[in-house]
Design a protein around this nucleic acid. Structure first.
Lengths: 123, 123
DNA sequence: CCATTACTTAGGTCTTGACCTAAGTAATGG
DNA sequence: CCATTACTTAGGTCAAGACCTAAGTAATGG
């Protein structure tokens, strides 16, 4: 039994994974590719077409996306097809919403504190 | 009147802004700082304390965060205090949830299509 | 006032990132 | 088959990133 509590122990993504996801999303070409892939899968050359960039340069972007786990690819004949892998988008979303919760909690506490000051008649 | 329709024309963040936010979040030290600042504001040296890193190196991270708009700072006497600026976190959240919507729409369409195939008795 | 404290500036190194051209390889389609 | 098509590999440039040390400056606190 290598992993007890497998059902509940959904381990948090490592920092390195989150690094990769945010990094991959920090480039406009790569974000654009992600956006286009969320509509439908596409081949490397289809994806490359809109950009004024040499093929090897563009493929580098696809490699970054694939390394981050945001997309996956499969080759059939001479065509490599890319697909969005939505779980990794969720990793980023989760991190952000966790921050939002923390932040909002803090603001609520601040509110409560200010309210108490007011109620206690402090000026 | 420099900006007509100011109330509704909340212009979308430029690609460069989104680049900066995601890039800033792609480093674990910087994400950690954001997390700590969402609890409360703090000075540069307080923020630096947990890391085994020379001060100038760490301040570089703070500069990246401030340039991205995720945090702001103000100097009083010899202390510079950093505060989280939550609007920029929202920029990243918004981009991600937009992608999720696109992606989910696509899956729904796919579902509908498969359902139709089944209903039409295709095998 | 003057030693500390809290940054700041200046500069150096080494790696990584984003592009490029040129030259592959490996499936097609006529 | 053999010219295309669809990537792939190899390698080169140039800027940016993430660290460092050393030497500032500018408020404080005793």
């Amino acid at each position: 039994m290598p992993a007890p509590h497998a059902a509940i122990a959904r381990k948090p993504p490592t920092a390195a994974i989150i690094d990769g996801v945010f990094r991959a999303l920090s480039d406009p070409t790569r974000r654009d590719v992600v956006a286009r892939l969320s509509a439908r899968p596409a081949s490397a050359s289809e994806l490359a077409a809109p950009y004024r960039m040499a093929m090897p340069s563009f493929l580098e972007h696809l490699k970054v996306l694939e390394a981050s786990g945001l997309v996956s690819s499969e080759k059939k004949g001479r065509v490599r097809t890319y697909t969005l892998a939505s779980e990794r988008l969720k990793v980023a979303e989760d991190w952000l919403s966790r921050q939002r919760r923390l932040w909002e909690t803090r603001l609520d506490q601040l509110d409560a504190y200010l309210l108490k000051l007011k109620k206690d008649g402090v000026t």
